[in-house]
Simulated assay, not measured.
Amino acid sequence: MLTAKQHELIRFIQQRLEETGISPSFEEMKEALDLKSKSGVHRLISALEERGFIRRLPNRARALEVIKVPEDAVTATRSQAAPASITANDAVASASSVMAKAPQPANDVIEIPLHGRIAAGAPIEALEGQSSLPVPAALLGPGEHYALEVSGDSMIEAGIFDGDFALVRRTNTARDGEIVVALVRGEEATLKYLHKEGAMVRLDPANATYDAQVYGPDEVEVQGKLAGLLRRYH
């Protein structure tokens, strides 16, 4: 048996995978489940992983795969006219139908622009020059993308490390709590969680040793949202 929060989390992850092909961040899961800290999300994910409902994909941040869904979650997707009880075979068939809607991974590799380094710490100059980076198409969703090499350790609790390549979907809007490329005062760029505080903009790190950065609404320009990561092993 799963707890109510475990049910809620697996439904949220499955919904995001169906909508975007990308599993939600720990911050997004924390807010969706109204938890006080991301440690609660870690515990829920570990419990679901131990029971065989989800698995973490290696070498990728924010990479979760739903292996199966709880039977009552499958029942909830049926129409109200459906019977209240279902057989085990019905549950398996319905779960397979739900999973079939998730975007299928592609084997293609595409080249996207690589624009220098971006800070995951104090802001630094970004978009220095341009080359290209080969990326598996399965890591990218719809839209235009570019890559930035991460410098610093302020996002390590989100699984983003120095030397990683941030894969960014180009956009000038983002929802509260999403990880964005933020251009600060038209000169410096940084990778942070975006939050609105009234008329102000707060850029939050994912490292307890760093402080949040607060700016006026005209000082921060969103230049993209994190879509995925690539990591090299030497």
Rank of each mutant, 00 (worst) to 15 (best):
R231V: 09
R175E: 03
H234S: 02
P142D: 00
P103Q: 08
L191M: 05
T77H: 15
A126H: 09
D108S: 06
K101H: 10
L139N: 03
L183V: 10
L183A: 01
H115I: 07
T75W: 10
E144Q: 02
G116V: 13
K30H: 10
I54H: 04
S151T: 14
A91D: 15
S46H: 00
E144V: 15
R169E: 11
T77W: 13
G52R: 14
K68E: 14
L203I: 03
I110P: 11
I10M: 03
V92I: 13
R175T: 05
L57R: 04
V135M: 03
K101M: 03
A95R: 15
L226E: 04
R43M: 00
Q213F: 02
T190S: 05
V180C: 06
T77S: 15
E71P: 05
S79M: 07
H7A: 12
K192V: 05
E188I: 10
L57K: 02
E187K: 14
S96L: 10
D204A: 11
D211L: 09
L133F: 09
A82V: 12
V181N: 07
A206T: 03
R43I: 00
A119Q: 05
N59E: 12
D176G: 06
L35Y: 03
R185V: 03
Y215V: 07
R62G: 13
G52V: 08
K30P: 12
A63S: 09
L127A: 07
R117V: 14
I67E: 15
